[in-house]
Computed example of a mutant assay.
Amino acid sequence: MKINIQKATKINERIPHKKDFTKWLYYIFFNKKIELTIRIVTINEIILLNHTYRNKNIPTNVLSFPMNNIYLDKNHKKLYLGDIAICSSYLKKEAYQFKKMLKNIGLI
């Protein structure tokens, strides 16, 4: 399993570790050969992505860009799942608003 993490937010902002993302995806895909890019973005970037791809000029917590049946390695059948953009600051705002705890997923 290969996961690319891109952090496009403030340096001091806490996000889950790569091992946490890997663990979560392992439980979802049961160790299949996959590749995925997760990008942690600012509110400005998530608004731009949401506007560009969904024609909505508002922030959101997560956007996904799936790639169906794209194999990076035809011999070993490594499946590229796509990209996920996560706006951690907006996610934190929503968690506070809905009284959800973030410490269990490494965001505080």
Rank of each mutant, 00 (worst) to 15 (best):
T52N: 09
T9H: 11
I38K: 01
N68S: 13
N12W: 10
L79T: 02
K78D: 01
E13H: 06
I28G: 03
S64G: 13
T37Q: 05
K19H: 08
G82F: 05
K56D: 06
W24N: 05
I38L: 09
K74I: 13
N44E: 15
T9Q: 07
L81A: 00
A95F: 08
K56I: 14
I108Q: 11
T22K: 07
Y80D: 09
L91C: 06
I86V: 15
G82E: 04
M1Q: 02
I86W: 04
K33F: 08
F30P: 00
M101H: 11
N55R: 10
K77H: 12
L48Y: 10
N55Q: 14
R14D: 05
D73P: 03
N44I: 04
K2T: 06
L25C: 09
I86C: 03
I86E: 02
I47R: 08
H51Q: 15
N104D: 13
A8D: 15
N12E: 12
L107S: 03
K23S: 12
A85S: 14
L48K: 09
I46W: 00
P59V: 05
P16G: 02
V62D: 05
A8C: 12
I86M: 06
A85T: 01
G82Y: 06
F65T: 12
E13S: 02
N104T: 10
T37W: 01
A8S: 15
K19V: 07
G82A: 07
P59R: 00
K93W: 08
I11T: 11
I86L: 11
L25W: 08
L91H: 01
I5F: 06
N57V: 02
K56Y: 07
Y71G: 00
D83V: 07
M101D: 11
N4G: 02
N31C: 04
Y71P: 02
T52C: 06
T60K: 09
N4P: 01
Y96A: 13
L91Y: 03
G106M: 11
I43R: 07
V41T: 04
P16M: 01
L63P: 00
K74A: 08
C87D: 04
V41K: 00
N69D: 15
Q6N: 15
I5R: 01
I3C: 04
T60H: 06
T37S: 10
T42S: 15
I58E: 15
